[in-house]
Simulated scan of single mutants.
Amino acid sequence: MTDMSLPTEQETGIWPTLFKGWRRKCPSCGNGPMLKSYLKVRDTCTVCREELHHHRADDGPAYLTILIVGHLMAPLLLVVFETWRPEPLILFTIFAVGCVALSLYLLPRLKGAVVAFQWARRMHGFKDRAP
């Protein structure tokens, strides 16, 4: 790494960058918060001033959240129903709360990971950042 420059993709690696995004931290420095509200990405990092407004996460995090929650809850619903045969209203209540809670937990983390992935791969406007 040269002095006074940000680390490149080869120096940091994709997995550490994705982990920074999962923690909702700046993909460049790993310290500054990436989100300024539940899902709103900051224009720039408050610590290293990396520009983050280039991201194009769009519906990707929502699709990934639906995919993960669906693949976890559907088999679990079948196992619980076949094993214990709870009342339908109880089963619905438990799984509705579980699906909502898991979705609310995953959505901002997956958005951070998608933005970090775009940053690491220099997609969209991130390609213009300093090497």
Rank of each mutant, 00 (worst) to 15 (best):
E82I: 07
W119S: 00
A116W: 04
A96H: 15
H53R: 09
L64C: 14
W119M: 01
L76W: 12
P16T: 01
A130F: 12
A120F: 00
F92W: 11
I94L: 10
H53Q: 01
V114Q: 09
V79L: 10
L110W: 13
K25M: 04
I90M: 08
R24T: 14
F92G: 02
F126N: 03
C48H: 02
D3S: 14
L107I: 04
F95D: 06
H55V: 00
M73V: 06
D43S: 08
K36I: 11
D128V: 14
E50H: 01
P88C: 07
C99Q: 11
S5K: 11
T46S: 12
P61T: 11
A96E: 14
G60T: 14
V47Q: 10
E82M: 05
S103L: 14
V41N: 00
Y63G: 06
L39A: 01
E87I: 09
P61M: 04
C29E: 04
A116R: 01
L72N: 12
W84I: 13
R85E: 14
V69P: 06
V114H: 10
L106F: 11
L110N: 10
L106N: 07
T83A: 04
C45E: 03
G13H: 10
K25E: 15
L18D: 13
P108A: 07
M4A: 07
P27D: 04
R121A: 02
P86W: 04
T83G: 04
T17H: 03
D58N: 09
I68K: 03
G13I: 11
L102E: 10
V100G: 03
D59K: 15
P86T: 05
D59F: 15
G112E: 10
P16G: 02
I14R: 02
L89G: 15
L18W: 09
K20T: 05
G30N: 01
R129H: 10
W22C: 00
H53K: 13
T17Y: 04
V69N: 10
F126I: 03
V100H: 00
P88S: 11
H54A: 06
L18R: 02
F92R: 09
L35V: 01
S37L: 03
R56G: 05
H55F: 01
L106H: 08
R85Q: 14
H55T: 00
D128L: 08
W22I: 06
L91Q: 15
L18K: 03
F92K: 03
D3K: 15
P33M: 02
M73I: 14
V79I: 15
T8N: 07
T93Q: 13
R129E: 13
P33S: 03
G21V: 12
M1N: 15
P33W: 02
A116I: 02
R56H: 11
A101E: 09
L110M: 13
P61D: 09
L104A: 15
G30L: 06
T83S: 06
C26G: 08
Y38N: 04
G98Q: 06
L76V: 14
C99M: 13
